[in-house]
Amino acid sequence: MAIVRHIAKRPEVGVFRPASSDGVRFGSAALVAPAALFLLITFVYPVGLLLLRSLSFPVWGIQNYAAIVHESLYLRVLANTVVISGVVTLLTLALGYPYAYLMATGSPSVQRLMAFVVLVPFWTSILVRTYAWLVLLQRRGLVNRALEWSGLIAEPLDLVHNRIGVYIGMTQILLPFMVFPLFAVMSRIDRGYLQAAANLGAPPARAFIRVFLPLSLPGVIAGVLLVFILALGYYITPALLGGPGDIMIAQLIQQQIGEFGEWGIGAALAAILLVGTVLLSAVLNRFLKLDRIWGGQA
């Protein structure tokens, strides 16, 4: 939504207004109307109707929200969702920040190689990546065999169908979404500032902490918000790599609606997830234009 505001503010270069500006407006409306109507009918209307059901199913009232607040199982799933998303966000930041730093400060060929390494998983289907982790992390999988061979462990570890599996899988799948915004911000930091800090006598570590780190903060905030938002609604990876104790809100919604036909509870959970997502997205929009992620240097 911020994109258009951003564009609208741009002064038009060398505007040559055709005879009738009403004609242009009409033309634009005719161009945008099909896509907008299409999405209104196939997307906005269904989602709106679902949200309405949280208040109308089986009868009108807030009973579904009250049930969620009073049922410890639902609250535990909500807490799970926040904890898993938070941990995954921190893990992607810990891995992604140094990676983006080296990428932003490396030579063009290093940059290309590192971008390729991030883009390959980004373009590979989530199912394929999750399957690969299932293969690697199972009890007789490659990771356990390597650990046993190295003598670090005597018995295979349980790395999948539990929280560890969810963390590993989601961190790998969401890592590109941390690296892209970090790199976008870091590559625009003027190296001259670091040089100036060095000239004034700051050792590299100090120059990094006092100069580079603060300048990269917008990228950190954008990456953290983006990964957290995406993690909140994750379904496939926790469902395949997690155990019964690691159910996240998306799985609960699927279960309530798809398996139990509990449209009211499912819709109320969906409303909670959507409100969280939209609020965080609004904050994200202040730091990062969506097209930077999807259309930028990717």
Partner: peptide, 15 residues
């Protein structure tokens, strides 16, 4: 892009 897919899936399923 913003609405989690699971929400879209349930809504689209109903309609």
């Amino acid at each position: 892009l913003i609405v989690p897919v699971i929400i879209a899936a349930c809504g689209i399923f109903a309609v």
